[in-house]
């Protein structure tokens, strides 16, 4: 006769009275160990819910319900542009992370001798296995993303999808398209070749021409009025640190709002 409790909560006794295989008993004791600490039971309901949601039937869309497919089938590829730009963004993020292993934002001199950044790009393109392809992939996915974003905006405009309940998403979209172009611009400057340098020069002049705060903006974004190491470093940080966080969050919000409000389908 033991002093141990033998009520419903004595899981060990319950396991003993069942005739369990070793696999089952190991599984159960691990489960009990975790459940005592984390109370997994509470989350099982969520999992179950998810399981049934995955097997749910998608509701018929507006066009399917009213049999409008024969009228609008040629519009449908245009409705994939948003997801195309998202996919291109993901591809660019992955290839960019891989490029980041080899790139160094160091522009020692702008006097025609190749800087470290330029040399690293050359190294990626000539010495690294698949490096040329990697850079190509990053560049093309960025180009495709920008193109898809532009076309996506045109589609939204011409099908009136920005109307009444969706104004907020239209404005988020404008912020996103602008940030996409900033993404492209900062990335354009990173190789630190002639085109990059002089495009950066235009950027400095643009920010200097803003009334009142122009010099401050130039200092903040470009680290000075001429292009130096500071410029390249700021562009690099914008490109790989600040913008990814902001843009990824905004994309999530953008898609989340589409999810909540539903796709504006043609009538």
């Amino acid at each position: 006769m033991s002093l141990e409790r033998k009520d419903d909560h004595d899981h060990k006794a319950w396991m003993k009275e069942r005739d369990l295989t070793p696999v089952e008993s190991i599984y159960l004791s691990v489960l009990v160990w975790f459940d005592k600490r984390l109370r997994i039971v509470d989350y099982l309901e969520l999992l179950e819910d998810l399981y049934y949601k995955v097997n749910m039937q998608m509701p018929k869309s507006h066009t399917e319900q009213y049999n409008l497919d024969n009228k609008f089938w040629y519009w449908y590829p245009l409705y994939a542009l948003g997801s195309f730009s998202t996919i291109a963004y993901i591809v660019a993020a992955i290839s960019g992370a891989l490029l980041g292993f080899y790139y160094a934002p160091a522009a020692a001199a702008a006097d025609g001798t190749p800087s470290v950044a330029y040399q690293q790009i050359s190294l990626i393109m000539t010495d690294l296995n698949m490096g040329f392809f990697l850079r190509s992939l990053h560049r093309w996915s960025a180009q495709v993303m920008v193109a898809a974003v532009f076309l996506h905006m045109l589609r939204v405009y011409f099908t009136g999808a920005y109307k009444e309940p969706r104004e907020l998403n239209w404005i988020i979209g404008i912020v996103l398209i602008s940030l996409t172009m900033v993404f492209g611009y900062t990335g354009y400057l990173l190789p630190w070749d002639q085109l990059a340098f002089w495009a950066g020069q235009i950027g400095v002049e643009m920010s200097l021409s803003i009334p009142l705060i122009g010099e401050w903006v130039a200092q903040l974004l470009f680290g000075g009025f001429t292009l130096t190491q500071a410029t390249l470093q700021r562009m690099y940080l914008l490109h790989v640190f600040l913008l990814p966080f902001v843009v990824t969050t905004l994309i999530a919000v953008h898609i989340g709002i589409v999810w909540m409000q539903g796709i504006a389908e043609p009538h």
Partner: peptide, 10 residues
Amino acid sequence: PPHIGPPANS
């Protein structure tokens, strides 16, 4: 594949 120009020269 993309092209890379000559290095920056102010």
